[in-house]
Amino acid sequence: MVTKTEETQLERLENQVDNGGGGAWEYLCLVRKLKVRRSEKVLEHGLSILNDPKKRSTLGPEGDFVSSNAEWTLYEQVAIAAMDCHSIDVARDCIKVLRKNFPESKRVGRLEAMLLEAKGSWAEAEKAYSSLLEDNPLDQVVLKRKVATAKAQGDISGAIECLNKYLETFMADHDAWRELAEIYVSLQMYKQAAFCYEELILSQPTVPLYHLAYADVLYTLGGLENLQAAKKYYASTIDLTGGKNTRALFGVCLCTSAIGQLAKGRNKEEKENPELQSLAAAALEKDYKQRAPGKLSLVTAALKSLKVSS
């Protein structure tokens, strides 16, 4: 997770580097440390360091004097960024340099396989990954890459299979759960997706996005019980975001009206408290009034139709 302070620091450094203020290496280090995806910037600034022998030679002392492998780390970083930006030639050059220096390395082997993947030669890439897995069957990066290759080829069920196998062992990896949830949603397998989102909520109970996504899935599943649960999760999203999430506000309104429709014929022993909905509607109207006055009439009409039907 990237914290607020880290993000502002990154932003500041990025600005500084973009405007020619130096500090490119620090910026690249920070990007690597925070694991953020800024491939274009990394490619641009990383290449400017690598192509300038004077700058490159100063990398050593800035790392530390014993391990002067800062340069190689940079090559790896630039290679991955280049593949992300589809600058295959740059990536190939970087990997070639690395291969020359580390002829036996598995890590370079991984990069080579990724290059094959970036070029779109799936079969070869998969073969390379499989041979890497033979050496170390628990290599998380390679296992994830296999999922990505399957997904890139459009083999969604293969990707799901790979991910499930991965999660069987690495079941505490919430990023993988998230990926799986999104795949299931894209396939409209909402029950499975709901399970994945539950897992995400368990691992990070205070991230409102997971509550919101879970509520969306529950609402889509439908049924009285799910709708009530969805409303609760929309409510928790509102609480966690301080009422700033428009989607959650709409969600509460939709859920209330849907619950009202479903429960119309039945006994109304547990009356849903209507106040939450009216408050959400009021919050929505206020929000629209402030930020998009032109669309206010549309929102009021939509909300009114919801209220009428409930």
């Binding site: 409510a235 928790s236 609480d239 301080g242 009422g243 919050a283």
Partner: peptide, 17 residues
């Protein structure tokens, strides 16, 4: 814990509105 969140959300929204 979620049923409690409905009341909390109400409180939040009331303050907001």
């Amino acid at each position: 814990a979620l049923p409690k969140f409905e009341q909390r959300a109400e409180a939040v929204l009331r303050k907001l509105v």
